[in-house]
Amino acid sequence: MNMSKIVREAANLLFPFILVFGFYIVLHGHLTPGGGFQGGAVIATGFVLLFVAYSYPQITERIGVGALHNTETLGLLLFIVTALIALGFGVTFFTNWMLDIGPILNNPVAFGPNPGDLNTAGVIPVMNIAVGIEVLGALSVIVLYMMSGTKETI
């Protein structure tokens, strides 16, 4: 059954802000405190807020378990592929291969305390995004599985 209208409207209102805050934490993972796991957990709390506010049939006809599961698989695949591309450059697995290619990505970082640029650190932001997507899918789909397991659908 649904929660009351006040809770549903508040969840609708808060969901975009939680999403923006989570993606901020994911994208700035190499500059500020945070990273893929923390940002993914924040985004997953936004999804869980929606799951709590609405009923299980209403959620599954809009989002779907398969979509979240595919999101998680996509994140893990992106992570592994990013690590595997390093083999094509003749270096070992998990090497930071983006540090010395391209005009945009090889922005040299100033050593010591600095303001920080978004296009530094090579492969680390890509892996942050991959892990963020994976954690977002995983935590949401675990809660969704648990909701489907209760006898009376909440």
């Binding site: 993972g29 500020t32 945070g34």
Partner: peptide, 12 residues
């Protein structure tokens, strides 16, 4: 690694 956040550098 080029990243400012040392914890993220170690993790990734």
């Amino acid at each position: 690694t080029g990243g400012n956040n040392i914890v993220t550098d170690i993790v990734f």
